[in-house]
């Protein structure tokens, strides 16, 4: 770390640090720094993931309890005279429901028809990326389980994103909703377009659909899998929720609702598919 001296020049230091930051951003965009940066990110993830897992193990039951308390708030008021035993039973019931949901998700992931036999690794979501401008989750499987950067990640419903960082025992998955996410999609009679993420909780925006294209709400869109695509073909992405032809526009305004529920991701499947295949 640089040494700050009282006799130093703060503005010079500021200029130096700003220029360094800007250089790093520039190198990142030019792709020159991806190797060292990715290596540093892997090391950081490896160091933090055990602590993260531990905190998650402690916080998960507490979180479930509070979620249950909020969900059953009115019921609790109506049953204010319930004893401690009843509260414990409610907690146990909530836990049981959660386990049932997790079991259902695992069952869904077991034998996904759209993967056409491509091997996959089932992983548990252990963390959500704590950034307000970045939609990503962390999973508990990494390179030691065969997970690699670039691999698509799916839930029982369909595509959820791809691996952007993988350490030995954990990996980061960039979600489809991330503003930097792009996925080539196919619909109708083999027409193709590109779906872009718009941020957490928002639907995807589909670009490059010519005006006048017949597109109805509910129409499914799958990954296109065209040459050079970062996703294999035919993975369900979402359904068209809205399409509009604006006068004079060069393309239709189309919104796509992802099939996967990003707010309830417990288990996912990493498809062992390499974009270079």
């Amino acid at each position: 770390m640089a040494i700050a001296r009282r006799s130093g020049r703060p503005r010079f230091t500021l200029l130096l640090l700003v220029l360094t930051s800007v250089s790093v951003v520039t190198l990142y965009y030019r792709g020159n720094a991806h190797g060292p940066i990715a290596e540093a990110q892997r090391l950081a993830q490896t160091a933090v993931s055990p602590v993260s897992g531990l905190v998650n193990d402690v916080a998960h039951p507490i979180e479930s309890f509070f979620q249950g308390a909020i969900h059953y708030g009115s019921l609790e008021q109506a049953n204010a005279r319930l004893t401690q035993e009843n509260q414990q039973l409610t907690g146990q019931l909530l836990s049981a429901n959660r386990y049932a949901q997790e079991a259902a998700q695992l069952k869904q992931l077991n034998g996904l028809s759209y993967l056409q036999g491509t091997p996959n690794v089932v992983a548990e979501v252990i963390d959500f990326d704590p950034s307000n401008f970045d939609n990503a989750v962390e999973i508990d499987r990494g390179t030691s389980s065969g997970v690699a950067v670039g691999m698509p990640v799916v839930s029982g419903a369909g595509l959820i994103g791809r691996v952007t960082l993988a350490s030995a025992h954990a990996a980061t998955v960039e979600l489809l909703t991330s503003p930097s996410s792009q996925v080539g999609v196919r619909f109708g009679n083999n027409q193709v377009a590109v779906a872009n993420g718009q941020g957490e909780g928002k639907q995807l925006k589909v670009n490059y659909i010519p005006p006048g294209t017949d597109l109805k709400p509910g129409e499914p869109m799958l990954t296109s899998g065209l040459q050079g695509s970062i996703y294999p073909p035919d993975i369900p992405v979402g359904r068209v929720s809205q399409s509009r032809d604006d006068p004079g526009a060069l393309q239709q305004s189309v919104s796509l609702k992802p099939l996967a529920n990003f707010s309830k991701l417990d288990f996912v499947s990493v498809v062992e598919w390499n974009p270079q295949q």
Binding site: M1, A2, A4, G8, P10, T13, L14, L17, V18, T20, S21, V22, S23, V24, V25, L27, Y28, Y29, A33, I37, A40, Q41, A44, Q45, V48, D129, S131, F133, D134, A136, T164, L165, T172, E174, S178, S180
Partner: peptide, 30 residues
């Protein structure tokens, strides 16, 4: 800690934060 220490702390804290994000590297440090 003053502006110079603030800038230095900000730079390193941002750099470390960027290690955990998928957004462009260097933005947090800047």
């Amino acid at each position: 800690g003053g502006s110079m220490n603030g800038a230095i702390i900000g730079f390193w804290a941002g750099f470390a934060t960027d290690l955990f994000l998928t957004t462009p590297f260097g933005l947090s440090s800047l």
